[in-house]
Nucleic acid binder design. Structure first.
Lengths: 230, 230
DNA sequence: ACCTGAACACCGTTCAAGT
DNA sequence: ACCTGAACACCGTTCAAGT
C-alpha cells in the first residue's frame, strides 16, 4: 500500500489552477448562483480559489468591478433573437426586454448594481444594439430612440431590482405588508385619491403589468419628440 | 478652585439624552447629510449617541429599516404644493416629480434603497396621494393612474440612483469613461445602430432629459389602457 | 422594559515581503 | 510580474447579564 504513495513533494493535490481573471469571474458566477450575490466577496472568492484575498486584486480592481463582470456574464443568457415568424418590431422588442427582465429577476441584487454601475460589457452592448435596431425599424427618430433605449432598460432593470424573487427574504415581505397596511389605513379625509385607486394600487407586479409598462414607454417614446432633435 | 468642583457623582457631563426612535433617526439623518449613507451604521450611530450598538435594536429592527426611516424623513423636503397660478395638472405633476427627483439626487445611495425597500412612510404616502390626485384631475382612468404612479416614481427614483451627484466618487467616473470608450469602439459591422445613434446616446442626463422622460411616461400612461380595466 | 459588554462571524483593502 | 501573510479598520447582530 505504502509503495503506491507518491513522494510528498508531488502528492496529487487538486492541482490548484493558475489564477486568471476568467477563472475568478467564473467562480464568482458560480457562488452567486448557489448562494446569492451577498456571498460573492473577495474573501469567500479567495477561499474558493485556495488563495488569499489580496491575490485577487491583481485581476480585479475592487468588489464593484467584480460585480460588474458577473453581471455582464449573466447578460449572455438574454435571448436577443426573438425571431417569431411574422412578429412585428414591437412584439420582438417586448420579447427581448422581457427576456432581459426575467434574467435579472433571478438576481435582484445584481439588478440593483446594474442600475448604478452602468454595465458597458460586451453582452450589454449587444442588448443596446438590438433594442436600438428594433426602435429604428419601427421608424422612431434617432433622438427619441437614443434616449428611449435608456428608459426601457432602466424600467426593466428597476422592476427586476424591485420585485426580483431570488432572495425571497422575509424582510421584503414585511415591507410589503407594512405598505399594504399603510395604504389601507390611509384616511379618506387626508388621502382620498389613494382610497379611490385602492384595488389596482396594490395589485402585484405580474407579467401583464410588466408588459403594460413596456407598452407605456414605447407609446410614449413614439409620441414624445426630443427637444432639439437632430 | 477646587471648591467650585461638583461632587464626582454628579459632574456636569453633556447629560446624555434618553434614547428614543426619534433621536436615533434624527442622528442618522445628520450623519447622512455630513458623511453619506455609507456611514450611517449601527456602530457609528451608537458611538454618536454615546452607547453600544446593541442598544439601538430596542428601537430599530435592523439597518434596512433604519435607512427606510431616514428616507421618509428626507421625503419631507419634497415640494408637493407646486401651485403656480394657472398651471395645468401636467405642469404641476412634472414639478412635483422633479422636486422629488432633486431631493433624491443629493442622496443616490438612499435612492437605491428606496427602489428596493418600498417606503410606506407618511411622507411617501403624501407624495403618492398628490401624484394620483393630479393624474385623476387629468382624467386618467383609475387603472392607468394606479399603475402609472408607480412607473413615474420608479423612473424618478431610478434616475436619482443612477445619476445622483452627492458621492461624486471617481469610480462612477471610471465607469462612465469605460462605457463611453466601449460605445465609441463599437464596430460599424457588429453594432451599426449604436454608431447611428452615437451623439444622442451619450448625451448626459440633464434636466431636459429628465423632463422628457416624465413626458414620455405621462403620454404613455394616457394612451395605454390597462388590461381588464375596472 | 431598557440598556449594555462582549462576543461571533464576518467584511474590503493595503502593504511589505517574498518568489 | 505575480502572489502572499498579516494587518488595519471596520461591519451587523445576538445574547446573557445587569439595572
Amino acid at each position: 500500500m505504502a509503495a503506491t504513495r507518491e513522494p510528498i513533494s508531488r502528492r496529487e493535490r487538486p492541482a490548484k489552477p493558475a489564477l486568471t481573471r476568467r477563472g475568478i469571474v467564473d467562480t464568482a458566477v458560480r457562488i452567486m448562483r448557489s448562494d446569492g450575490l451577498d456571498k460573492v466577496t473577495m474573501r469567500r472568492l479567495a477561499q474558493e480559489l485556495d488563495t488569499g484575498p489580496a491575490s485577487l486584486y491583481v485581476y480585479v480592481a475592487n468588489t464593484a468591478e467584480l460585480h460588474g463582470a458577473v453581471l455582464d456574464a449573466l447578460l449572455g443568457e438574454v435571448d436577443l433573437a426573438a425571431e417569431e415568424a411574422g412578429a412585428g418590431w414591437r412584439e420582438q422588442l417586448v420579447q427581448v426586454l422581457t427576456s432581459y427582465t426575467f434574467v435579472l429577476f433571478e438576481h435582484p441584487r445584481l439588478a440593483r448594481s446594474a442600475l448604478v454601475a452602468h454595465p458597458g460589457g460586451e453582452n450589454y452592448l449587444n442588448l443596446v444594439e438590438r433594442v436600438l435596431g428594433l426602435l429604428s425599424r419601427g421608424g422612431v427618430p434617432v433622438g427619441q430612440a437614443a434616449w428611449g433605449v435608456d428608459t426601457l432598460l432602466q424600467y426593466a432593470t428597476a422592476t427586476a431590482a424591485e420585485h426580483g424573487t431570488r432572495e425571497q427574504d422575509p424582510a421584503a415581505q414585511d415591507d410589503w405588508d407594512a405598505l399594504t397596511r399603510a395604504v389601507h389605513d390611509a384616511d379618506e379625509a387626508t388621502h382620498p385619491a389613494i382610497r379611490a385607486h385602492l384595488p389596482a394600487l396594490l395589485a402585484g407586479p405580474d407579467e401583464s403589468r410588466l408588459t403594460w409598462g413596456f407598452d407605456v414607454l414605447i407609446n410614449g417614446i413614439i409620441h414624445t419628440p426630443a427637444p432639439l432633435e437632430g
